[in-house]
Design a protein around this nucleic acid. Structure first.
Length: 855
RNA sequence: GGGCGGUUAGCUCAGUUGGUUAGAGCGCGUCGUUCACACCGACGAGGUCGGAGGUUCGAGUCCUCUACCGCCCACCA
């Protein structure tokens, strides 16, 4: 026990208690406890991108309040923390921060790169230095290590009750091993496969991307009206396109089967403008008669609909756009005419924008474009972090089956969502609509470097050709492996790339392919069966709604495959933090507020208070005013605790000593608050628990404490003992009710009079308040507070001090309420400085106050 | 085009199965330094609950339609 400071304050509580908690290990997971007594949390690993904004602090606080509640309910809380450091965001940061680019063909020993003394401040016009893959990965690891230290410091200051003995990174050895093991098992069960197919391709990052990473952006474009020529010479067919540069990739025209205008053309062929290639006119239900001229050109590949047509109508392939986003050097099959080849030569090597310009010039020359291009704005598909539109190119990639091509699997994943408890429930809609709209399997391979390698090698035949169907996979005991650095099992490194040798798969997995395994990574699946059995399936997945289609869905997929279960019982979905202008906070908008600055200014409890005011799933605006209120609440907790402990003197917390009806009434109401707060937290609604606790707390301070103040000073009497016991019982309850939200202030005041940490105490139970709470009449406190309020009002309206005596107070009210008032009359008289209190029966409350002479 | 969420005091939000005069905090105004708290307290003003219709003895709460805001999915020639 500690002494109570003369002037309690919030300053320094974070440092003091942070150290104590760490030293005492109060958040350590007790892994001796059986599964039924464990509460395990699949914390989102924050993307290590240099800084965390106040929105992150908000959602992590939500999780922490639940963790603290469950801990107080007696569960062994398994609360690990991870860092999402693998993947493209880190690569991009390394490229910009150090001014480098990865060239996999370089050797480590040849690198001439030196880490700049003052990184991050590259001179303008600096050209990226090419470095080897190995050195590039070193820089990635170095940068994320720095960030992870900063992140942990913030989380600790914020008071997250994480067990820091259990941390992981998505590029760490455990994550790599788990990712590769899960992948190999997917492969063995045919849940993963490789295919050479059209894929969404980001030309800047030079990698394939998944449907989930794609987003639409409104982009300027233009309709071009182009004339195709009927092969029988009977005239032209006019189509409209926004991508005339793909004309050379045209493989057919398509119209709706019921479209009378084009029905006669089905089965015939037309010749393309400029290139004079003969293409068929085909029918397909996806062609829309209302769009453009009602007939469209199919190119390989202009957009995802082209892919559908190409596949379903079994059209040939005429690829003209390369992986670098430029027109391929050699013309596609079928482009035979001299004029066509000459024109193609002029666009070869250009990027699509330049090529479009040249093609339009050609069309103008030949007169095959009707009128001028008509500018429009239309949605175009982009990689969510990309600068240029996606292209679709055919390439060999790895996929995991996610129901996108398979109704049975799709239904299985929809069923999983029904089994999951969603908080709030309507968030399930996002999952359902995403799964129902899937158009293909999940593409997991990326042509990048800082990720988990695909653990596969391919045999090279006697002629030196790679046979992608002749795979070599590692034994699970070898994991993790890096096929581009280690030889395939049974081979020697000298055989790499040689005839009768091997090559390694050079791709890495998408970051979601690893993140989707976080429940398996943190519970040490197949690595530590004991820990796994005690923590999996997990209890809670907290996450933001924007990544339901990625993280949540993909996690459900992987757990379904590996363990045949849901990965967790509850998904708690948090909203966004908006800036005060109701825009989503983001670094690019420059409106990010640093959480650490706010913690220093108002205290961690204040920031947590603001966070905990946002109900689960709802967006919330950042408001400095809310921090001030939280700070005020935390300070009030300190001050009222100090008063109560002083007023109680030597009294001990003995609820049976609570004999006064007003005291019993207060405890009865408090018991109701405990029940509500408990129910709210059981439903993950920290905001409701806080609201109820806070509302009662202010009534407790403003009314109850004022009412019993005088009586509590009459030491040595039963009346005083009753007040002291009730005050202490309420204090012990309130301090614990606040503990999950305001861990620092709660711990501070707890330490003034109790042993041990409040965070290891049991959550309050109404039964602790005993018979007084069970039998107390809630009305007594209400009526007493009402009358006290009326007296204050009279004094306030008379503009006199509250210390001014009221010579006579007449209370008119119902019999029941007057009866309740009588039980607290002496306290009301004392608190209101009332000389004479008179009651009269009436239908409703009215109070007449006669004031004495002021002064 | 399909769907989800929201709309309550100047601001931020509660309002749990429909039940008496719709709540809180902030802000604003007035008063007050009572021995926990001036990083304070007390009191007050302020809303026909987005709109229309319906069910009901009774609707902020249930139903239908509708407007606006935000978002998801689909489409995107």
């Amino acid at each position: 026990m500690a002494t109570i400071p003369d002037k309690p304050g919030l300053e320094g509580l974070e440092a003091t208690w942070g150290k104590r908690w760490e030293a005492d290990g109060i958040y350590r997971f007790d892994r001796a406890r059986p599964r039924a007594e464990v509460f395990s949390i699949d914390t989102p690993p924050p993307t290590v991108s240099g800084s965390l904004h106040v929105g992150s602090a908000c959602s992590y606080t939500h999780t922490d309040t639940v963790a603290r509640y469950q801990r107080m309910r007696g569960r062994a809380v398994y609360y690990p923390m991870g860092w999402d450091d693998n993947g493209l965001p880190t690569e991009r940061r390394v490229q910009n921060y150090f001014g480098v680019r990865c060239d996999p063909s370089r050797h480590y020993d040849d690198d001439e790169f030196e880490i700049p003394a003052k990184a991050g401040s590259l001179p303008s016009g600096h050209r990226a230095v090419a470095i080897s893959r190995k050195r590039f990965l070193e820089l990635c690891e170095r940068l994320v290590a720095e960030d992870e230290v900063k992140f942990e410091a913030l989380w600790r200051a914020l008071g997250l009750s994480v067990d820091w003995q259990y941390t992981y990174t998505t590029i760490g050895e455990g994550a790599r091993r788990t990712s590769q093991r899960a992948f190999l098992r997917n492969l063995a069960r045919d849940e993963a496969y490789q295919a050479d197919a059209p894929t969404l391709w980001d030309v800047d990052d030079q990698t394939a991307i998944a449907q989930a990473e794609m987003e639409d952006k409104e982009t300027p474009g233009a309709y071009h009206r182009l004339a195709f020529h009927r092969s029988d010479g009977s005239g032209d067919v006019i189509i409209e396109t926004t991508r005339p540069e793909l004309l050379a990739a045209c493989v057919a025209l398509v119209a709706h089967p019921d479209d009378e205008r084009y029905r006669p053309l089905f089965g015939t062929s037309v010749r393309t403008p400029l290139y004079d290639v003969e293409v068929p006119v085909v029918a397909h239900r996806l062609a829309e008669p209302e769009k453009g001229s009602g007939i469209a050109m199919i190119c390989t590949f202009g957009d995802v609909t082209d892919v559908t047509w190409w596949r379903e109508l079994q059209l040939p392939t005429r690829t003209i756009v390369g992986k670098d986003g430029r027109i391929l050097a050699s013309p596609p099959n079928g482009l035979a005419s001299d004029g066509g080849r000459a024109r193609y030569e002029e666009i070869a090597g250009k990027n699509v924008k330049q090529a479009q310009q040249r093609v339009v010039e050609h069309l103008a020359e030949t007169g095959e474009m009707l009128g001028e291009p008509r500018p429009i704005t239309h949605p175009v598909k982009f990689y969510e972090r990309g600068k240029r539109p996606l292209e679709i190119v055919a390439s060999r990639q790895w996929y995991i089956r996610n129901g996108g091509r398979d109704a049975e699997r799709r239904e299985a994943f929809l069923q999983r969502a029904r089994e999951l408890h969603w908080v709030p429930p309507y968030m399930k809609q996002r999952y359902d609509s995403w799964v129902e709209g899937l158009t293909g399997d999940w593409l997991i391979s990326r042509q990048r470097y800082f990720g988990v390698p695909i653990p596969v090698w391919y045999r090279v035949d006697g002629e030196g050709n790679v046979d992608h169907d002749d795979r070599v996979v590692p034994d699970e005991s070898m994991l993790p492996v890096d096929p581009s650095a280690e030889p395939a099992p049974g081979y020697d490194e000298s055989q790499r790339g040689k005839a009768n040798g091997f090559v390694g798969d050079g791709d890495v997995m998408d970051t979601w392919a690893t993140s989707s395994l976080t429940p398996l990574i943190v519970t040490a699946w197949a690595d530590d069966d004991d820990l796994f059995a005690r923590t999996y399936p997990m209890d809670m997945r907290p996450q933001a709604y924007e990544i339901i289609r990625t993280w949540l869905f993909s996690t459900v997929v992987r757990s379904h495959y590996e363990t045949g279960t849901l990965p967790w019982k509850h998904a708690a979905i948090s909203g966004w933090v908006l800036d005060p202008d109701r825009k989503k906070m983001s670094k690019s908008k420059g409106n990010v507020v640093g959480p650490m600055d706010w913690i220093e200014k108002y205290g961690a409890d204040a920031l947590r208070y603001w966070a905990a005011s946002a109900r689960p799933g709802t967006d919330t605006a950042f408001e400095e005013a809310q921090l001030k209120i939280g700070r005020k609440l935390a300070i009030k907790v300190l001050n009222v605790s100090k008063f109560v402990l002083n007023a109680a003197g030597d009294a001990t917390l003995e609820v049976d000593a609570v004999t006064n009806p007003l005291d019993q009434s207060m405890l009865a109401q408090l018991g109701g608050v405990v029940r509500e707060a408990t129910a709210a937290f059981d439903g993950f609604d920290y905001a409701r628990s806080l609201e109820r606790t806070e509302a009662f707390f202010w009534r407790f301070c403003d009314d109850y404490v004022e009412l019993v103040k005088t009586r509590s000073y009459q030491t040595g009497t039963d009346a005083s003992a009753s007040a002291a016991a009730a005050l202490l019982a309420a204090l012990a309850t309130l301090q614990r009710l606040f503990a999950p939200i305001l861990p620092y202030a709660s711990e501070e005041v707890w330490s003034w009079w109790r042993d041990g940490s409040v965070h290891c105490e049991s959550w309050p139970d109404p039964a602790e308040l005993g018979d007084p709470a069970a039998t107390g009449n809630p009305l007594v406190f209400d009526v007493a507070a009402d009358v006290l309020g009326a007296v204050r009002k009279a004094k306030s309206e008379a503009k006199v001090s509250l210390a001014t005596p009221a010579t006579r107070v007449v209370v008119r009210d119902t019999e029941a309420r007057l009866g309740a008032l009588a039980l607290a009359a002496s306290d009301v008289v004392a608190a209101g400085k009332i000389d004479e209190l008179v009651t009269e029966a009436a239908a409703e409350l009215s109070v007449t106050v006669t004031l004495g002479v002021a002064g």
